[in-house]
């Protein structure tokens, strides 16, 4: 037992605790920038850990996949691709909403009807498509049909019980109004397949690679400018716009419900 006062030592202790607590507050305050700096050194081990863990966790899935039939794998693949397309459509809608800064009538999401191309009309190649949905699914004439990412390709002209006929926007001889990035209206003439041709004034500001949107609904991407033919003897430039429709790769079509 001691009678000596320990006040000095206790005082040093309190000062020490205060300094430590202050240092902790400063560290927490500057943590976001400190973390960014530290992450450069931590990234290597994190990647190694993540890839090892994923490899171990996916062993049961890989083993079960090995024993699956090819048909089952193709069905799973198809389901995943449809999911991707559905998500791309949703992203396109949300992007359009963000850029326009306004809500659509249905709120911030649009439900879509999924359809498949049964066959192309062989008498009018690259003119019409027959789709797998019809009157029973709520399709109506003049409804716009689009591909993944809300890229319009055709408009419904006939509706039957379980199928419908969709005329391509780019079918030969048909006209549609598009709008360039600068807001200029383009009178696009269908060239068959997925291509449009338009005449633009010689002083129009349009470049290769520019996107052309549908004038009636600027959220829908009609196509991309692939070539501008500038003939000095002509009164206007000729613009070739490629739409999204490709008879080989375009299989799944969507329309708003």
């Amino acid at each position: 037992m001691t009678y000596l006062s320990d006040k000095k030592r206790k005082k040093r202790g309190y000062i020490w605790y205060s300094v430590v607590i202050l240092l902790i507050f400063i560290f927490v305050y500057f943590w976001p920038s400190v973390r960014t700096f530290l992450y450069n050194y931590v990234e290597g081990p994190v990647i190694i850990y993540g890839s090892t863990r994923t490899g171990i966790v996916s062993i049961p899935y890989n083993v079960s996949t090995y024993f699956k039939s090819k048909k089952d794998l193709e069905d799973i693949n198809r389901g995943l691709e449809l999911n991707i397309e559905r998500l791309e459509n949703e992203i396109a809608v949300k992007d359009a909403i963000i850029s326009d800064n306004k809500l659509s009538q249905n709120g911030s999401s649009v439900s879509t009807l999924e359809m498949y191309s049964i066959l192309e009309d062989s008498t009018n190649i690259y003119s019409t498509i027959i789709l797998s949905k019809g009157f029973k699914d709520g399709l109506e004439i003049n409804k716009l049909v689009y591909l993944r990412g809300r890229q319009p390709v055709c408009i419904i002209v006939e509706v039957h019980d379980q199928t419908s006929v969709c005329k391509l926007l780019s079918s030969s001889g048909s006209f549609i109004e598009g709008v360039s990035p600068n807001g200029e209206t383009l009178f696009l003439k269908g060239d068959g397949g997925g291509t449009f041709i338009a005449d633009i004034p010689r002083d129009a500001i349009l470049n290769e690679g520019d996107s052309v949107h549908l004038k009636s609904d600027p959220t829908l991407l009609l196509g991309t400018v692939v070539s501008i033919v500038k003939d000095n003897q002509a009164t206007a430039w000729k613009v070739y716009v490629r739409g999204q429709y490709n008879p080989i790769t375009s299989n799944v079509f969507y329309t708003d419900k």
């Binding site: 605790y17 430590v20 560290f27 927490v28 943590w31 976001p32 973390r35 992450y39 931590v42 081990p45």
Partner: peptide, 29 residues
């Protein structure tokens, strides 16, 4: 704790480090 706070994405507050500091301070006290 710093490693885990950095790796696991503690963007605003280093949670694990703070918990450790509190435990250490209380223990030392």
């Amino acid at each position: 704790t710093l490693f885990f706070d950095t790796a696991l994405g503690a963007h605003r507050v280093p949670v694990f480090t703070l918990i450790l500091c509190v435990i250490v301070i209380i223990y030392e006290f």
